[in-house]
């Protein structure tokens, strides 16, 4: 059977059939794998929150090792005692709070009078209450985000940062231990006033011994990413001020 493959009608029919076949294969595959992909995303969030809280599998001095995916749900239940959603000054308990998409909330709040739902996780570490809040901002190339763990005086007990596309070796270093560990012990409040924490150049404190200057030594060559970290810390943690005021 000789078909004239150069005819226009043949070309059109060929393209339609090809698109239909390929489309159904991909649709089938995507919906088949969706539960696993979703589970992976959920585990990742739980791992990140636990990491900020200080629950991890780190062994060496430079490791950033999460709790393994096999028991992350157990650990999450064990360490995170309560999950809240803060919306317009109201506090609602919600054990699915960690699934809130910060990016979507941010966009919704931008247009109109929508009050952002702010997830907040209360955990127990070494017998003390620790409050973990999510943050999200802009780096040099794309989004950066993370979690900050605070005690009730808003002193940092741990952080976790991640990024979508910062420069490897420069901005991407924000997810390295030596940078994240610097934040531990820094304070968001100066007395009663909200100061935030700044990633600063030339603050003459490379080992970060001064814990009350609200400053972290910047990463060389990553000014914009560092500024992005400062900005997201300042802006996003501030939204939880009303909650922290009720604690003291």
């Amino acid at each position: 059977m000789a078909v004239d493959t150069e005819k226009n009608s043949y070309t059109i029919i060929f393209s339609i059939i090809m698109v239909l076949v390929v489309g159904s294969i991909l649709a089938g595959l995507a919906s088949g794998l969706k539960p696993m992909v979703k589970a992976n995303e959920r585990f990742e969030k739980q791992q990140n929150i636990l990491y900020a809280l200080g629950v991890n599998n780190n062994t060496g001095a430079n490791d950033v090792a999460f709790v393994s995916t096999d028991n992350v749900e157990e650990q999450f239940k064990k360490y995170i005692t309560k999950q809240y959603v803060l919306q317009g000054g109201e506090l609602i308990e919600d054990d699915q709070a960690y699934l809130i998409d910060i990016k979507k909330e941010e966009t919704k709040a931008k247009n109109g009078s929508y009050e952002r739902r702010l997830p907040l996780f209360v955990g127990q570490k070494d017998g003390k209450d620790v409050y973990v809040v999510p943050i999200r901002g802009k780096g040099l190339w794309d989004a950066i985000w993370g979690f900050v763990a605070l005690d009730k005086e808003m002193t940092v007990t741990g952080v976790y940062f991640d990024h979508k596309a910062e420069t490897p070796g420069l901005g991407a270093e924000i997810k390295q231990r030596y940078f994240m560990d610097d934040f531990t012990g820094e304070k968001f409040l100066s007395g009663e006033i909200y100061e935030g924490i700044t990633v600063a150049k030339g603050n003459n404190d490379p080992k970060n011994n001064r814990k009350d200057d609200h400053k972290i030594d910047a990463l060389a060559g990553a000014t914009i990413t560092g500024d992005g970290v400062s900005a997201m810390l300042k802006k996003d943690v501030k939204m939880y001020m009303s909650y922290f005021k009720t604690l003291n």
Binding site: V3, T5, E6, Y10, T11, F14, S15, M18
Partner: peptide
């Protein structure tokens, strides 16, 4: 043998 040469790159 069935790809029309006009749209072979797209295919």
């Amino acid at each position: 043998n069935i790809i029309p040469s006009k749209i072979r790159i797209i295919a």
